[in-house]
Simulated assay, not measured.
Amino acid sequence: MEDIKAYIESGILELYVLGDITHDEKLQVEAMAAKHPAIKSELDEIERSMEQYAEHNAVEPNEQLRGRILNSLLTNLGDDSTFNKAEDFRDNVATLPVAQPTNFYKYAFAACLALLIASGVALMNLYNKLQQSNTQLAVLQADKQHFANRVNFVENELGVLRDTTFRFLILKATPKAPAGASITIAWSKERHKVMVDMANVKMPVNDKEHQYQLWALVGGKPVDLGVFDANPDSTDMKEMKTIAAVKTDAFAVTLEPRGGSINPTMDQMMVLGKF
């Protein structure tokens, strides 16, 4: 059954109907059609399709052109003087060579099909290699960015460590925060700077509607030092707002609406620490 199907799909039946096959191939088709009803049925269907196509695309000649041709034939046939005797043309007849059947188009089509398939396979392989290259490039870029962030963090941290005016303080969890929550800050009262060590922020990740806000308690009054997000990928030292006070009682972090609040929400105080 597979051989018959492959024979039908080979295109030999269409070439038979068009007359574009050799004598031996013609005999083979006729023998296969006589032996296999499926091939005979397919051959009949191809012939019907060809006839329907010819009828559908037939072009009727112009009536005026038809009349002119018929009149010309009648005029020439009625005038014997326009024709020479048959023996006068006998020596002028040239024998044309018998056209040899050729399979050029069939083989050319097969070659084009093979080339198309090979090109498709090559393009697919090229596409897969390109996708792999893009993936590797994305990984390298991510590694490069991570390395750059790490270098930046180390440089900032070294700068803070070398600056003897900075003092480090760990703000520890209040009852509102999960156990183990903490934030490390560096404060230089001489430079009026406060830095948050983002790599050591051990706090729950805040949602899009909230941010953590750092406060300094100066003389019992809270001073806003800015907001930040608890991003687990952060590795830098984040510089907060400057603080002019020389003496600071404590530092605290509250969870506030995104952008921060004017006054701290006391029941959302997460960590607290003092020198």
Score class of each variant (00 low, 15 high):
L217E: 09
A33Y: 00
E25N: 02
A142W: 00
E14T: 11
L70M: 12
N71Q: 05
T174K: 01
A142C: 00
V160I: 15
A38S: 12
R162C: 07
R48V: 07
L27S: 06
E87K: 12
I69F: 08
P97C: 02
T164R: 05
A38N: 00
G19E: 09
G67D: 14
D79E: 12
E87I: 12
E55A: 14
L27P: 03
S49C: 02
V98S: 05
M237N: 15
K208S: 13
E25P: 02
M266E: 12
L214V: 12
K144A: 14
R48H: 09
A114E: 08
I262A: 15
N92H: 12
K241R: 07
K202N: 10
T265L: 15
M203S: 01
D207Q: 06
I117H: 08
V160Y: 15
S72Y: 14
Q28W: 04
N62L: 10
N200L: 11
K202F: 06
W215N: 06
L15C: 10
S188D: 05
P175R: 03
D163T: 00
P101D: 13
D24W: 01
D80H: 09
A108S: 10
M198P: 00
A110D: 03
L137N: 08
M50L: 11
V201P: 11
D143P: 01
R258E: 12
K221A: 10
Y107C: 01
V196I: 15
A216M: 01
G226D: 12
E63A: 14
N149A: 13
T95P: 04
N57W: 13
G159N: 14
H56C: 05
M266D: 06
N71V: 04
A118S: 12
D267W: 03
M270S: 08
A33C: 07
L225I: 10
A6S: 09
N152H: 13
S72P: 00
N62D: 15
Q213L: 02
L18C: 09
F104W: 04
T135G: 04
R162W: 08
G226A: 12
N149M: 06
T95V: 14
K172V: 09
K202Y: 09
D229H: 03
V121C: 10
L137W: 00
Q268V: 02
M195G: 03
I262H: 11
S81Y: 08
K274E: 15
P178K: 08
V253L: 01
G260Q: 04
D207P: 08
L96P: 12
I170V: 07
K40R: 13
V223H: 12
G220M: 03
L214H: 01
A111T: 04
A111D: 11
F251M: 05
T254V: 01
R48L: 10
K238C: 06
A110W: 02
D224E: 08
G219I: 03
V205F: 00
A173R: 01
E155V: 13
K176V: 09
E63Y: 03
D163Q: 00
K247I: 09
P61A: 06
K40A: 13
Q268S: 11
M124F: 13
D20Y: 05
A216Q: 11
I243M: 04
F166K: 03
L140W: 07
P222R: 04
N231E: 07
L113R: 11
N92C: 06
D88N: 14
T265P: 11
D233N: 13
G219W: 02
K189V: 07
A148R: 08
T95C: 00
D20I: 07
E47K: 14
L140A: 14
L27W: 05
Q211E: 14
T22N: 07
V139Y: 06
